[in-house]
Design a protein around this nucleic acid. Structure first.
Lengths: 220, 220
DNA sequence: ACCTGAACACCGTTCAAGT
DNA sequence: ACCTGAACACCGTTCAAGT
């Protein structure tokens, strides 16, 4: 425990920073530590104490920034949804045709999951749900933002005649979005869990085939 | 801890039963206790000690029947996959046309997940995977059996001309199965996690719409 | 405001011991 | 063979105390 805690103090000059006390934005450090640990160990079930150790603080320090462990997990999950949203958005940035954009965003979605399996797992972990079944609003809205990338593409395609114009109706759009999302989410989960017979090199091909089928089924 | 442990002993007559020592098949009792607890608490992250208490034995007794906690979870998961397989099988028992059977099995799949959300969650829990990424063979094969209900229907349809004859080729059949499975699995997970905007009464309708779309996309 | 250390009630797992 | 109780190293969370 002695070799930690040093570099942080040096980095800060005069404590003019807003969140700098001992640490300089411990909140962010904890989130980053959690993400790093999860991806290294290939296991998102890290302990709060471990995260604190990694960040070089006592095991109680996190409670100054998060209500409890689930609150930290929620922050990590929200960060993941934001990254996923950005991935998809930038991937389809220049694509005009809505069906091509939907295809690309679907493929990118799966790629994100396979590239960050533990983070993706955490994002959809039931551990995020409270004792009831309500997940933090933070997570829900971040997830909604990622989902709305698909939704926006479908809405755009409905206006331009690529997808059925019925998708301009709210409930029809919802079902269409749900269809696309279910497909890529299900595939991603199954792939991460290694429940397929598909060998890893063929995975990309399989995901493209699947997404292509989904796009075609919505275009009809 | 005193009020437990009684009824069990009375139930056994002369200890002629094969697995009966103090308990009469403690292995099965532990699995049942785990399932019951998970569904009551709406949370599959039960503790091994809690399960043991519920079964009326010491917290170490489970180690005579399971290697560790994950091994018990694997048994619970396998039981879930078997139940899911049976649900689908009996649902499509009398259905001749392959596309109708695929529709029915898909709808039944989602229904199973929504009826047993915590058990379904556990079945696909990453906690089942070992430190590496290998899940117990037991779980994999049980999952494969459930998946093969979909696969068999698709193969049958390929022979009878309902689905493309290319589905008789092994890798094409695999992708088709994966497409169907991804869709229902993804929808089920999203629904369980309450990440949809769909109000619960409309859920059944939404699931039927989704499965119908999937069947149609494979029929083409 | 932010952090620490002691304390509490748990947990999974191991070990020696009982029948 | 099957079960128990003590023990170990952890965990999440709370509380009083320090700056």
């Amino acid at each position: 425990m002695l070799w930690q805690n040093n570099s942080m103090k040096i980095a800060r000059r005069k404590s003019t920073e807003p969140d700098a006390y001992h640490h300089g934005d411990l909140r962010r450090s904890l989130i980053e530590a959690a993400v790093a640990m999860a991806s290294e160990k290939q296991d998102w079930t890290f302990s709060l104490r471990e995260v604190a150790r990694r960040a070089g603080v006592s095991h109680n320090a996190p409670y100054n920034h998060f209500q409890d462990k689930r609150d930290l997990m929620a922050a990590v999950a929200a960060a993941g949804y934001n990254a996923l949203r950005d991935c998809m958005k930038s991937a389809i940035a220049g694509i005009e045709k809505a069906d091509a954009a939907l295809f690309k965003s679907g493929v990118e979605y799966v790629k994100f999951g396979l590239d960050h399996p533990t983070h993706y797992r955490l994002m959809f972990s039931s551990a995020l749900a409270a004792t009831q079944e309500v997940r933090p609003e933070q997570v829900k809205s971040a997830a909604a933002e990622a989902r709305s990338v698909l939704e926006d593409v479908l809405r755009r395609g409905a206006r331009t005649g690529v997808f059925p114009s019925s998708f301009q109706r709210k409930d029809e759009l919802m079902i269409a979005t749900l269809t696309a999302w279910s497909a890529v989410h299900g595939f991603t989960m199954i792939a991460i869990d290694d429940l397929i017979g598909v060998p890893r090199p063929l995975m990309e091909h399989a995901s493209e085939r699947l997404v292509r089928t989904v796009v075609a089924s919505l275009r009809a």
